[in-house]
Structure formats: C-alpha cells, structure tokens
Write a protein that binds this DNA or RNA. Structure first.
Length: 846
RNA sequence: GGACAAUUAGCUCAGUUGGUUAGAGCGCUUGAUUCACAUUCAAGAGGCCACAGGUUCGAGUCCUGUAUUGUCCACCA
C-alpha cells in the first residue's frame, strides 16, 4: 500500500509563499542563531527608499539572500539587517511631484507642514516596502529593522559630525556650487548628470574684443576678460582695463592672462564670471577677481542685472541676446555648437553654478585609510575590476559639500551665535537647544536650517545600524559583504569606507559585490514611458517568487547589466514546477509509513547518481563561495532536470531505490534552497520525517566523488545513440544487440530508456553500431538509409583522428603538456580508432 | 579627452586559474504521449567564439592593435 501524499498537480506558489514566509519569520529563523557553531556572517541590506514601490533593482538583493541563506545553512551566526531610507532629496522630489498634481508646491505648505506630511508619507510607504521585501522571500531579521531617521541613527550621525568637526575636517566655505533652482539646494558634483545638447554660441562685442559665450545673461556678473598669455593677438592687452558699451551702460573690465583660455576656441577671448562658472571661479581665485552674483537661488537674475532683474535665466538669455543684437553688440551666432550641460540627477532641473556658503568636509585625510584598505586587500571587490575604479575615484576626490538646503532630511547639528553676551564663537556643534542655550544664552542663537547630504548619513549605515541594534560589539562588525548596485559605488560605497574607517578603525565590510542594471530583454533601461517595465510584484504573483529569483540569478553576472523578460521568468517557473513534480512522483512511490535510511547503492544508475550528486555539491559550494551565483544556478538546473529527472528517475522506474531517491531529492532541495527558497521549503514541508524547516537545515557535505558512474555512462551512450537512430528513421521499438554481458545485465533498463523492443546478447556484432559493444538490429535497407550518416561520421572522425595523431607526434606537446592531458589524448585516439574501424566495417558491406 | 566593460547559435546569455570535438535556455524543425510533470518527453538543425597580429606544445580564454556597442569619470567659455 502506497503512502498517500496530496500534492497539487502543478506547483502553486500563491498557496505556499505567504504561509511559508510567516512560518520562517515566526520561528525566528531569520535571527542570528547564537548557538550556531561558525563565525558571525553579516550583510546590511541597502535600505530601500521609503517613497515608493520596489523595482527589479531591489529584487537584485536576491544575491544577498542567496549568500545569507547559504551561510545560515552552513552554521554561521547569520545576520541580514533590513533598513529603510528616508532618502532626503529623492523623497522630497517624489512628494513634490504629488503636490504638483494638486497644483501645489512645498512653499504653499511651509517647511514644518511639508516635513510633517513627508514624514507621514514615508512611514506609510515603509510598511508597503517591508511587505514587498517579504514577498521577495528575503530572510532579513525584521526585529532589527532600522530607519535612517531613527533617533539612535541620527545620534550616531551627529556624533560623527562632532568628531569630524573636532578633527578640523568640517568647515564653512563660500564657494561655487551646483545649485538646483527647483530643489533650492546645492549638490555635490556627483549628483549632477551631464547631457550633450545644442545651444546657440553667441559671439558678442566687448569693447575691442569679440568673444564667444553661451551665457550672455551672466555678463552682468563679468569681472574680467581673459586671454591666453601666449596669444600674440591679445597679449598686449593683459593688465589693461578696457571700457565696453553694455546693456546697462558702459562697463570697465580688466584683461587677465590665464592658461585656461584656449586660443583655438571661439575668438580666444573669454568673459570671466566667477560667480556662475566653475572655471571662471578658479580664474577668479588666481587673479583675485570680484565675485558678482547675478543669478539668485530662485534661478532668476538679481538686481545686479539691472533691468533684467527678476527674469528667469532662460528668458533673460533670450532677452539679452535680442537686446545685444538690437544694440549692434552681437557679432554673430553659431547655431551648431554642441556642449554638455549639467542637470540635477534627481529632479532633472538645469543646474545653475553659483556661490553660496556651505558646510564642507575635508577629505584628504579621511580618504587615506580607505585607499589603503583597498590597496592592501582588506576590502575586496566582486568583480575585481571595480577595485581600480573605486581607487581612482577616491584618489581624485575633492572636498565634499555635505550641506543641503532641502527640507526633508537630518538637520546639521549647529547653532549660530546671534550676538551672545557670553560667547564669541560664531557657532557651535550641539545636538539640541539646551546645549545651545548653555553656550550662547537664551535667545542668542539660531539653529542651522541646512540638512545633511543624504549620503553623509547613509554613508555611516553599517555601523550606525549595528550600533542601533546592539550588535556592533558582538562580532557582527565588520560586516561580511556589501552587495549593492554598481551605480552607487561612488555615492555610497566609497563613503561608507571612509566613515567606517574613521569611526571604527575597521573596514565596514570585507567584500563589495556589485550588481549591474536590470534591463529589458533588448538591453534597454526599463521606464514607464517606454512601457517595458517589469514589476517584480506582478511577476511574482503570476509566476512565483522563486521564478523571478532564478531569472535574476542565472545568466546575470556581477557588475554587468542583466536582461530579463517575462519569457525568461516563465522558463524558471517551469523549472520550479519540474522540481515540484519530481517530488510529487517520488513521494507517490513511497510505501505507507516509509521513513528513509542511509541510501545503499545497488544499480549502475545508483552509483552514477551518487557520483553526480557528490560532484554537484562540490561544484555548487565552490561556485557560491566564489560569488558565481549564475553558475551555481545553472549547475542546479541541469542537476535536477537532466541528471535527476530525465535519467535517474527514469532509470529508477526499472529498479526503484527509495532511499536514494529521497536522498537525491533532499540534497537538491538543500542546494537549491538559497536561490529558490519557497518551492524547496514547500516540498520539504511535505516530507513527514522532516520535523525542522529546510531554511535551518545543514548544508550538504561536499565529498569528493565516492562512486564511479562509468557503467551507467556506457548505458547512456548506447541509449542516446539508439534514440537518435530511432527518431531519425522513425523506428518503433528497435531491437538492440550487444556482445557485452555487462550491458545485457541492464537489458530492461536499456529497453525502457531507449524505448527499444528487445535486447539480445549476441556473439558477433551486426547492424548499426551504437558505440560501446552494442548495435541496433538493422536490415540491408536501413543500413543503406544510414549510409550517408555513416560516411559523414567517418569523415568527421578521420579529421579528428588526424588532429589527435598530429598532437601525439609533436615532441614538444608530449614534453610540455601535463601527463594526464597527454594520456587523455591517447585514450581519445584509441577510442576514435576503434570507432572508425567499426564504421569502416559497416561501410565495407554496403 | 581618460577609464572600464561587452562582442560566442536566430534571440538572451554561461564558459573558474589556457588543456576533451565550444555549452544552456528560448525560438525553430521532426516525432511521442492516458502510467510525476504539455509548465512534459525524445531527436535534430544552427557557431572561422567581432577583426588583424602575437605568445604557447595548445587560445573563446593571455598580450598588442582595430572596429562596433554600452557604461562611468573629466570637461567644453
């Protein structure tokens, strides 16, 4: 009597996923197990922004889940810590877009109300986000969920700022910065994205000169004219003050000589506007030029622009150009000038360079330990090539503007002196008003309104989180791996290195694994406007989470963009279903009350399977250790589908070995669990003798292959050859002949696998040769029909034989190549010779 | 301007330190099928591994150069 199992005909992810996730979470499996025998293993999940839905970029964190689940099964004290990011400017922009739809802006709400609303918005989104992370099956420890605005995190960030300030790494500076008129905030260079575009290049008359500019509207901020000191045409002007007619009346400008000026560009003369051009700013510093700000923080011209005051930049440019033309001050306009222009990467607004007082972080000392850690291998990159990229970036890093004028963020903990009777300090770093009052006295201070750059706080994430959860001192820091998108290597990863080393004296993580962009199947970036977006939550609902996870693992390599399509996901849905049905079949074979024992190996197929499993355990373990997740997935795919399902299970129908079937199934479930946790746990849950969850089951031991699968390999070759001929010649149940007692001993097996009619033991081979010592019984006409195949085979093998013989005749090959390789070549030559003789024998009779 | 990738079957991609006659999935062609699975099974076709040199007994793999595509950095008054 067979045991009765009730498994659906097809795997139904929706029926299991939520239930299983809940079961994992409730059981405490996600928490680091204090009794686990091996070292702590930590990954801090890059905190998703709490301002919208997860996308496929987040789903790529499946790589982290694979590492974490694998280490957990291996017996490490494993912690994967989840977080949520308030994502300063990005969230602010997202929320402003929502306001825009109601025809409002943040200025309508005011700073406090805006902050309150965005705070509520992120809190709401946070639960949305955490639900979605659960749907992806990520085994994070929710009890340690940390938000970037949690009090303890903010305190850590303040403490860091204080320490940096004490070290003299923090300073105020009035410099040219990248200003976004929409966000009304300054940004770091790295937050500016350049786009190539066509703009009119105006050749304007300036006293005795004609000079080229794309920005005539900034001319009211000009404080010099520059030429190249080697330029014969103009060098005699250097040092002179020229007078020029201009739109707001005559102006006087000094001519300076500076190597920056390219004599080949335009006319070789440049107007210098230190307030609104980074290069002009530098020239201004070199020549001590006056800085005249003619564009305000609202993106409109200031009073210094005279009658153009109040005009938005774009409008002013047209008006000025028009007026110059009218006044005869325009020489000509080049309409074919192409140059790159900076836009704010979050909101897409054109960046206006302007000067404004900001908080700066001195990086020359800060970056040194990070550079050293990369160079001496304390931090490794996967893929390796990013080592140099990160190093180059750090080595060329300039001081970092860490203040933002946005409304949503962590306020910089500074209070300014407003005429304090008791303190002469211009400002102090203090965490609250109490301290400010103590220093300056009641009412004599003012709080800084600038916020930190989001990356200043998130750059402290590894230790800020672990300090918040109390794990910092318990061996979970330094963390093991930082896995994140390649696109935030500079924004985030390098900053974490600098801060981590500064605050803790240790690297924040030992390995950086970077994934690329997930694109559509044609390599195009997914975007709503293109309509090619794959929403991870939609596809997990349709095909199951495991299918998506497999699709994001297999065929995607670290650091490179990965393409994904519904078709690909569908393929892995089929794979999950295959696994399901394998289990369904095996369980259906088991007798009532079955409980597994250590498998004994009876048949050639048994030994073959055991060898395959042993090899697979070794290879998959090695692949996971080496971060080759795609390869691990592929190995599993073919282990399950090709080896286990198509060969072993089919073979087992002739001589079932329940213990080995179960051993094989359980081994595969364990191996695949990190990548496809749901279906594997669902099946595991159907095994009545398994009381514990798969998620916390021990990883299989990797033994060197203990058995020899050669006997079954010979059977496979005969079967494959027979199938091919039968399929091509449309034979039904052909007869197979063999001179080998060993093969004949597996007659039933061969018959079944090859769909053969009869297997006969014979003295002398005849018919169509199948390899080994087997033939397919064939009459004259069948052999004749195969003649061209045989001839093609002979031709192919003859060429091959020649190449082998040439190799073996080469003295240098015999001496240079390893003995094993040479021996292999000899064996192959012998096999080929043998085969050729059989083929010749058959052809001779035709 | 600099750097880094990629270029392998119709499509999408693997290919770990150089070592079988280069693999997979999808697609295509042909056939099968009440007995776990049509989300299936079997078979087949399809590749000068971008190009040109070089190193080596041996190159998809290493080196040099070229081309194309992509990404990043710098920067263009």
């Amino acid at each position: 009597m067979k045991q009765h199992f009730e498994l659906d005909k097809a795997y139904n992810p929706a029926r299991y996923e939520a239930k299983i996730y809940q079961q994992w979470e409730d059981s405490g499996a996600f928490k680091p197990n204090p009794d686990a025998p091996k070292d702590p293993y930590t990954i801090i999940m890059p905190p998703p922004n709490a301002n919208g839905d997860l996308h496929l970029g987040h789903a790529m964190y499946v790589v982290e889940d694979i590492m974490v689940r694998y280490r957990r099964m291996q017996g490490h004290k494993t912690l994967w810590l989840p977080g949520a990011d308030h994502a300063g400017i990005e969230t602010q922009v997202v929320y402003e877009r929502l306001l825009q739809k109601e025809g409002k802006s943040r200025f309508d709400l005011g700073r406090d109300e805006f902050y309150r609303q965005v705070d509520a918005f992120t809190k709401k989104n946070m639960s949305n986000m955490t639900d979605q992370v659960r749907k992806l099956g990520f085994s994070v420890d929710w009890s340690r969920l940390t938000y970037t605005l949690d009090e303890s995190v903010v305190e850590t960030v303040y403490e860091t700022f204080q320490q940096l300030h004490d070290k003299g790494y923090i300073y105020r500076g009035n410099r040219i910065v990248n200003w976004c008129p929409f966000c009304r905030s300054a940004f770091a260079d790295i937050e500016v994205k350049y786009r190539e575009q066509l703009d009119p290049l105006y050749y304007i008359k300036y006293g005795p000169f004609v000079l080229a500019t794309v920005r005539p509207e900034t001319k009211f901020g000009d404080t010099a004219i520059a030429v190249n000191p080697k330029d014969e045409r103009y060098k005699h002007y250097i040092g002179q003050t020229i007078e020029a007619e201009d739109l707001n009346g005559p102006v006087k400008l000094t001519v300076i000589g500076d190597d920056f000026v390219d004599p080949e560009f335009g006319t070789g003369v440049v107007k210098v506007t230190p307030a609104h051009d980074p290069n002009d700013w530098e020239m201004g510093l070199r020549h001590h030029l006056e800085v005249k700000q003619v564009i305000g923080t609202d993106g409109r011209l200031t009073e210094l622009a005279g009658k153009y005051a109040g005009m938005p930049v774009a409008e002013a440019r047209q008006q000025v150009a028009h007026d110059l033309e009218e006044r005869g001050l325009m020489d000509h306009i080049d309409m074919s000038y192409s140059h790159s222009v900076g836009y704010h990467d979050r909101c897409g607004t054109l960046i206006e360079p302007l000067t404004i007082e900001q908080w700066w972080l001195r990086v020359d000392e800060l970056k040194k330990p990070a550079i050293a850690a990369i160079k001496n291998g304390d931090i490794k990159f996967v893929p390796e090539r990013f080592t140099k990229v990160a190093l180059d970036w750090l080595e060329n890093l300039h001081d970092w503007n860490i203040s933002r004028q946005n409304w949503w963020g962590i306020r910089i903990p500074v209070y300014y002196n407003l005429g304090s009777p008791k303190s002469r300090k211009p400002y102090i770093v203090a965490w609250n008003e109490t301290d400010a009052t103590k220093e300056f006295g009641e009412g004599h201070y003012e709080a800084e309104t600038d916020n930190f750059d989001t990356w200043f706080s998130s750059g402290q994430w590894p230790y800020a989180t672990l300090m918040a959860t109390g794990d910092f001192d318990k061996g979970f820091y330094p963390t093991s791996v930082m896995e994140t998108g390649r696109d935030i290597l500079f924004l985030w990863v390098t900053r974490m290195m600098m801060f981590g080393l500064f605050r803790t004296g240790e690297v924040p993580f030992r390995t950086v694994y970077l994934h690329g962009l997930v694109t559509d199947e044609h390599g195009k970036k997914m975007s709503k406007s293109k309509g090619n977006v794959i929403n991870p939550l939609d596809v997990t609902a349709t095909y199951g989470t495991d299918a998506l996870r497999l699709a994001l693992t297999i065929g995607i390599t670290p650091g490179n963009d990965g393409r994904i399509s519904e078709r690909k996901i569908e393929g892995y849905r089929n794979f999950c279903n295959k696994l399901w049905n394998v289990a369904r079949f095996i369980l259906g074979q088991l007798p009532e009350g079955y409980s597994p024992a250590a498998p004994k190996l009876h048949s050639p197929a048994d030994r073959w399977l055991m060898a395959k499993l042993d090899t697979a355990i070794c290879d998959i373990t090695k692949a996971l250790e080496d971060y080759r997740f795609s390869e691990a997935g592929q190995l599993l795919y073919s282990l399950l589908w090709d080896d286990f399902a198509d060969w072993y299970i089919e073979a087992s129908k002739v001589s079932p070995n329940h213990d080995l079937l179960i051993y094989g199934l359980e081994t595969i479930l364990k191996l695949i669990h990190p990548i496809a946790p749901f279906v594997s746990e669902a099946i595991w849950g159907e095994l009545p003798w398994q009381a514990d969850q798969l998620i916390t089951t021990a990883w299989p031991n990797a033994n060197k292959s203990r058995t020899d699968g050669a006997a079954f390999e010979r059977i496979r070759q005969v079967v494959l050859a027979a199938r091919t001929i039968a399929a091509e010649e449309q034979l039904s149940k052909p007869t197979i002949l063999t001179t080998s007692k060993e093969l004949f001993a597996s007659a039933e097996l061969i018959q079944r696998l090859a769909r053969a009619g009869e297997i006969r033991l014979i003295e002398q081979g005849s018919g169509l040769f199948l390899g080994q010592e087997a033939w397919l019984e064939a009459d004259e006409s069948l052999i004749q029909a195969r003649k061209h195949r045989l001839e093609a085979l002979r031709a192919e093998k003859s060429v091959y034989l020649k190449s082998l013989e040439a190799k073996l005749a080469n003295e240098r090959y015999i001496q240079g190549a390893p003995a094993a390789v040479v021996q292999e070549t000899r064996d192959r030559r012998d096999e080929t010779l043998m085969l050729l003789s059989k083929v010749d024998e058959q052809l001779k009779d035709l």
